Amino acid sequence: MYNLVSFIIYLSILNYSYDDSFAKECIENQNTCIEWKQNPIFKSSQSKIEYSESFLSVSNGRIKNVLDLLTTLDLENYNYIIVNDLKVKYDIKIYREDYDKLHDSEILSSLEKSGLIKTIEKDIEK
């Protein structure tokens, strides 16, 4: 019984200890903005990703889903650390204010500037 009660308390804390307000960060000299909001773990809706030339929208998705979407970056030289738990889901919007093409590097720098991921260089042995 003790373990069951402890587990239920743990799950309820996970579900209700999130920040549901939108945060916004714009990157200077790029006209790129990111808005994000953390969702409860047990939100029942499906994840959805929309991606166009100037806009990326993630509804109830994980950061890993966004990183998997980025295919044109040279990922061999970098490691990306997801700052929060992999199980945390977000609503994320990344867009260009001038409606120009949104590059993968801008998406990556937006995620890093917002504190959702951290980029580190790999130690390359020669």
Score class of each variant (00 low, 15 high):
Ser6Ile: 04
Tyr80Gln: 07
Leu4Ile: 10
Ala23Tyr: 15
Ile124Ser: 01
Cys26Ile: 04
Val83Asn: 15
Ile82Ser: 04
Ile117Ser: 01
Lys113Cys: 02
Leu56Glu: 01
Asn84His: 10
Gly61Ser: 05
Asp20Phe: 06
Lys24Glu: 15
Phe7Thr: 12
Glu97Pro: 02
Tyr10Pro: 02
Thr32Asp: 02
Lys37Ile: 03
Glu112Gln: 06
Asn15Glu: 12
Gln46Ala: 10
Asp85Ile: 09
Thr71Ile: 13
Ser54Asp: 14
Asn31Ile: 07
Phe22Asp: 08
Ile8His: 02
Tyr80Ser: 08
Lys87Val: 15
Ser114Trp: 05
Asn77Glu: 14
Glu53Gln: 15
Ser6Val: 06
Tyr90Ile: 01
Leu14Gln: 06
Ile94Glu: 02
Asn60Lys: 01
Met1Phe: 04
Ser114Gly: 03
Ile41Asp: 07
Asn60Met: 01
Val83Arg: 11
Tyr10Asn: 11
Lys87Ile: 15
Tyr16Asn: 14
Val58Ser: 00
Asn84Met: 08
Tyr80Glu: 07
Ile49His: 05
Ile27Arg: 01
Ser52Tyr: 03
Leu86Gln: 14
Asp74Tyr: 04
Glu106Phe: 04
Glu125Trp: 04
Ser109Lys: 07
Tyr99Asp: 14
Tyr16Gly: 10
Lys89Cys: 09
Lys24Asp: 08
Leu69Phe: 04
Asn3Thr: 06
Ser54Tyr: 07
Lys122Cys: 01
Glu53Trp: 06
Phe42Tyr: 08
Ser12Ala: 14
Ser6Leu: 08
Phe22Ser: 10
Ile13Ser: 07
Phe42Trp: 10
Trp36Glu: 00
Pro40Gly: 07
Tyr18Trp: 03
Leu14Gly: 04
Thr119Ala: 06
Ile92Cys: 03
Asp19Thr: 00
Ile13Met: 06
Lys89Phe: 08
Asn65Tyr: 07
Ile120Tyr: 02
Glu28Asp: 14
Ile124Gly: 01
Asp100Ala: 11
Asp98Cys: 04
Asn79His: 13
Ser17His: 09
Leu102Val: 01
His103Ile: 10
Val88Ala: 12
Tyr10Met: 09
Ser6Gly: 10
Asn65Arg: 05
Gly115His: 00
Ser54Gly: 09
Asn84Gln: 11
Lys101Thr: 13
Leu4Glu: 13
Ile34Met: 03
Leu70Gln: 06
Glu35Tyr: 09
Ser57Cys: 13
